[in-house]
């Protein structure tokens, strides 16, 4: 992102990069709206959950616990554990944003960090700034909220086969983001494979069954990137 590009252009560039994420979110958030209302929550609350939480696994998990009548502590701890991975993304982004980005700007666009917006921003060449980030998160926030509203309103009219098919949408998006860079870079491909292998070990070997799903993803992420950084250091990491 060169300095000669106007703030407006940076915003619209981010907006453009966020649109595929926004559309990809619709089937997933639609499913969420459906689930929340079928579970007994009012339509407005389902929409408010998506607008205020803007996350997939965390809000699905938390909402299921609300519906099941769980206590505040259990809900908060579960959601927090699922969301610890955002701290790694936020730390990674702290090295990616333009250093002159103000605290207020960080507090604003930080709200829109999701698995997808984080990875798309990370893949931009060079540093990213506030206006790009603001553009990037706008579409996904809208898509996530609108999809939830649609699912919450139509709730009962969807055939079971279609609603369960939409469960794959989020993971298909992950695959769409991860495969192209894995084709172009052997270290990236190997890191993806290593983190998946660790994830499989933690999930299926009974010795590790005490590890929750949230922590499993965190351990696999840290070990995958940690082993990768030891084996394939990026020489020009400082200059971008």
């Amino acid at each position: 992102m060169g300095k000669y590009i106007s703030k407006r252009e940076k915003f619209f560039w981010g907006l453009k990069k966020g649109m595929p994420i926004a559309f990809g979110y619709i089937p997933v958030s639609f499913t969420f709206g459906l689930m929340a209302v079928n579970g007994g929550l009012p339509v407005w609350l389902a929409i408010f959950i998506s607008l205020s939480n803007l996350t997939s696994a965390g809000q699905f998990g938390g909402t299921n616990l609300i519906i099941a009548g769980a206590g505040y502590l259990e809900i908060v701890l579960t959601v927090f554990v699922i969301n610890i991975r955002y701290m790694m993304m936020s730390l990674s982004l702290s090295q990616k944003v333009e250093p002159n980005t103000t605290l207020l700007q960080r507090l604003i666009f930080g709200f829109g960090i999701t698995d997808e917006t984080f990875v798309v921003a990370s893949m931009e060449p060079g540093k990213v700034g506030f206006h790009y980030m603001l553009g990037l998160i706008t579409g996904p926030i809208a898509g996530w909220t609108v999809g939830t509203a649609a699912g919450a309103v139509v709730s009962t009219f969807l055939p079971e086969a279609l609603s369960s098919a939409m469960g794959i949408a989020l993971y298909a998006m992950f695959i769409a983001i991860i495969v192209p860079p894995s084709k172009k870079s052997i270290p990236v491909f190997m890191i993806v494979i290593i983190s998946i292998a660790i994830n499989l070990i933690l999930k299926y070997i009974p010795l590790f069954s005490f590890i929750s799903d949230g922590f499993r993803v965190i351990v696999a992420t840290i070990l995958g990137a940690g082993i990768g950084a030891a084996l394939w250091p990026i020489e020009e990491a400082g200059t971008d």
Partner: peptide, 17 residues
């Protein structure tokens, strides 16, 4: 620095499979 640059790839791998 390298570790932080590899986080996007390892986290998506771990989230998906």
């Amino acid at each position: 620095k390298t570790f932080l640059k590899y986080i996007p790839y390892s986290v998506l791998g771990a989230l998906t499979f």
